[in-house]
């Protein structure tokens, strides 16, 4: 029993150290220096909301519009996800860069198609 216990403790420490090592080696590859560089929107027009507001609230905003559109059948075409995609034509060069930077993984793009 004693032997088992000390063995288990040693294995535990070994696993922990290995994990630390993997993290230390693996992390810097994904972390960029400085804030992410996002692609400028095409078309040069104004966004439908101020930039700062969008940065903080776009997720709730999109979710709200999604509920309206899907479940209530209310389509506000000037504020739809398709409208976003008119200027932000690529989600990989706009949305994803920031999402990766802050470490969130929304599953919008599993289904919603962007022009590019």
């Amino acid at each position: 029993m004693e032997l088992l216990r000390s063995l288990a403790a040693r294995i535990g420490v070994a696993v922990f150290v290995t994990l630390l090592f993997v993290l230390a080696v693996g992390l810097p590859a994904n972390v960029q220096a400085g804030p992410p560089q996002l692609e400028e929107p095409k078309g040069g027009g104004e966004c439908i909301r101020p930039e700062g507001w969008m940065r903080r609230n776009h997720m709730d905003f999109l979710k709200h519009q999604r509920g309206l559109t899907v479940r209530e059948g209310i389509r506000v075409r000037s504020e739809s996800l398709a409208k976003c995609a008119e200027c932000h034509t690529s989600h990989t060069r706009f949305c994803d860069r920031c999402h990766n930077y802050v470490g969130v993984a929304p599953d919008c793009f599993e289904c919603h198609l962007f022009p590019e």
């Binding site: 209530e72 059948g73 209310i74 389509r75 506000v76 075409r77 000037s78």
Partner: peptide
């Protein structure tokens, strides 16, 4: 052309 806002 569809209007900007439509509702079911």
């Amino acid at each position: 052309a569809p209007e900007n806002v439509t509702e079911a």
